[in-house]
Simulated assay, not measured.
Amino acid sequence: MIRRGSTLDRSLLLKFMQRTYQDLFPNQDFSHLEQTVKQYFSSDTPLWWVEEDAENEGHGDAGKLLSASPRPPIPASSSPIACLWVGNAIDQVQGNRHAHIFVLYVAPEHRRRGIGTALMQCIENWAIQRGDRQIGLQVFQSNKPALNLYDRLGYQTQSLWMVKFLNAQK
């Protein structure tokens, strides 16, 4: 079941962000993500959680995610299996505001069951309702499953983010 999060879910969001990056870069320290959440998480940056429905546990029925009615924020005792956090960005070519996906994470043991696709459909519907003309996201080149998902859903590369590491002293 999908539930809308609230700003009270700050610590759970941080936990999911750390899991996201830890999956990709297992030997890194991600304590700095707390600053990202502190700086960007607000009532203007919506958050959705997916909880496993006890009746349908293990059935992979992601279609229920889209038809689920909005529910109250998740209780502290609950353990979500997926998370979607969205913010706002400005298209640098057209100047239009659009949704930008900060985090999409599905716990490894729940992947390949349509949950990521259902969350992407949810955010697309939300963005259309508010008048957005596009959705942006950033994905690591090494994250092949995510790249495959976004490609299958029609996302296209618009720009490349390039970095050069420097030997600067702190």
Results as ranks from 00 to 15, higher is better:
residue 106 V to I: 09
residue 35 Q to E: 14
residue 40 Y to L: 15
residue 126 W to R: 13
residue 100 H to M: 07
residue 128 I to L: 10
residue 65 L to H: 03
residue 75 P to Q: 12
residue 82 A to F: 01
residue 133 R to H: 13
residue 64 K to W: 00
residue 56 N to T: 14
residue 44 D to W: 08
residue 133 R to D: 12
residue 160 L to M: 10
residue 8 L to P: 01
residue 164 K to G: 11
residue 59 H to R: 14
residue 164 K to W: 08
residue 28 Q to L: 03
residue 169 Q to V: 15
residue 49 W to M: 01
residue 144 K to V: 14
residue 72 P to D: 14
residue 73 P to T: 09
residue 101 I to S: 03
residue 8 L to D: 15
residue 54 A to S: 13
residue 129 Q to W: 09
residue 101 I to R: 00
residue 67 S to Y: 04
residue 9 D to Y: 09
residue 14 L to E: 08
residue 21 Y to L: 09
residue 37 V to A: 10
residue 13 L to A: 08
residue 96 N to K: 05
residue 64 K to E: 11
residue 5 G to R: 09
residue 132 D to N: 12
residue 156 Q to A: 10
residue 94 Q to W: 04
residue 76 A to S: 13
residue 86 V to I: 10
residue 48 W to H: 07
residue 96 N to L: 09
residue 81 I to L: 07
residue 3 R to G: 01
residue 128 I to A: 14
residue 151 D to L: 05
residue 27 N to E: 13
residue 30 F to Y: 11
residue 167 N to I: 12
residue 130 R to Y: 14
residue 70 P to L: 06
residue 45 T to A: 12
residue 105 Y to K: 02
residue 43 S to E: 15
residue 101 I to Y: 03
residue 71 R to I: 03
residue 59 H to Q: 14
residue 169 Q to L: 15
residue 102 F to K: 08
residue 166 L to W: 06
residue 5 G to L: 04
residue 55 E to R: 12
residue 151 D to E: 12
residue 30 F to M: 03
residue 50 V to Q: 01
residue 101 I to D: 04
residue 73 P to H: 04
residue 116 G to M: 08
residue 157 T to K: 05
residue 15 K to F: 01
residue 87 G to E: 07
residue 137 L to R: 05
residue 135 I to A: 05
residue 92 Q to T: 05
residue 91 D to P: 01
residue 11 S to E: 14
residue 118 A to R: 01
residue 75 P to E: 13
residue 146 A to M: 06
residue 13 L to W: 07
residue 50 V to L: 01
residue 86 V to S: 03
residue 22 Q to C: 04
residue 76 A to C: 04
residue 65 L to W: 06
residue 88 N to F: 07
residue 63 G to Y: 02
residue 6 S to E: 12
residue 2 I to R: 08
residue 44 D to F: 10
residue 89 A to P: 00
residue 33 L to G: 05
residue 114 G to P: 04
residue 87 G to S: 11
residue 58 G to V: 06
residue 84 L to D: 02
residue 114 G to R: 04
residue 150 Y to L: 01
residue 1 M to Q: 09
residue 150 Y to N: 01
residue 125 N to I: 12
residue 113 R to P: 05
residue 148 N to Q: 11
residue 10 R to I: 14
residue 12 L to D: 00
residue 117 T to D: 00
residue 20 T to Q: 11
residue 21 Y to V: 00
residue 165 F to V: 15
residue 86 V to M: 02
residue 80 P to M: 02
residue 76 A to P: 02
residue 36 T to D: 15
residue 158 Q to V: 11
residue 25 F to N: 07
residue 38 K to L: 15
residue 138 Q to P: 00
residue 82 A to M: 07
residue 153 L to V: 00
residue 85 W to D: 04
residue 151 D to Y: 03
residue 24 L to W: 06
residue 152 R to D: 03
residue 75 P to D: 12
residue 168 A to F: 15
residue 153 L to T: 04
residue 143 N to A: 00
residue 76 A to E: 07
residue 167 N to L: 14
residue 77 S to V: 01
residue 69 S to P: 09
residue 3 R to C: 10
residue 162 M to L: 15
residue 8 L to H: 15
residue 147 L to V: 01
residue 47 L to R: 05
residue 2 I to M: 10
residue 75 P to K: 06
residue 60 G to R: 03
residue 73 P to D: 12
residue 75 P to F: 05
residue 71 R to W: 02
residue 135 I to K: 04
residue 84 L to E: 03
residue 52 E to A: 00
residue 36 T to C: 12
